[in-house]
Amino acid sequence: MNPVVTRENEARLIEIRDSMSEQVVSREVVVGMSQGLHARPADQLAREARKWQSRIELLSDSQRVDGKSILDVLTLAAEAGTRLVVEATGPDAREALEAIGSLFDRNFNEQERNDGR
């Protein structure tokens, strides 16, 4: 029996195709700066996020905010040691996630370091 491409099937196929061009990638990051995610790193983060076409969002336990908005990022009030998830959605999601992730990995180039480092 030949499979029949019904209207319903066709709609589903298109949906799958769309979701494939719209990459969603995410990773966990830790706020390593002793002062937390304060104004300066929040600015750096939003600036980096705006370079990319993809939507960049930050997720905490209770919030999901726009990574391209410094006001949004500041509402996380993420203290030192806070775990966040960065989620990128769009055509350049992978590259964007790598760039944002590396800001956290480098502690946003803050001079001072946490104890024991």
């Binding site: 304060h38 949004d72 993420a78």
Partner: peptide
């Protein structure tokens, strides 16, 4: 008290949205 500073910034930015 870095936490207090962060929470003040949080309040300001939340309200200013």
């Amino acid at each position: 008290r870095p936490g207090d500073h962060l929470r003040a910034l949080e309040n300001i930015s939340r309200q200013l949205r």
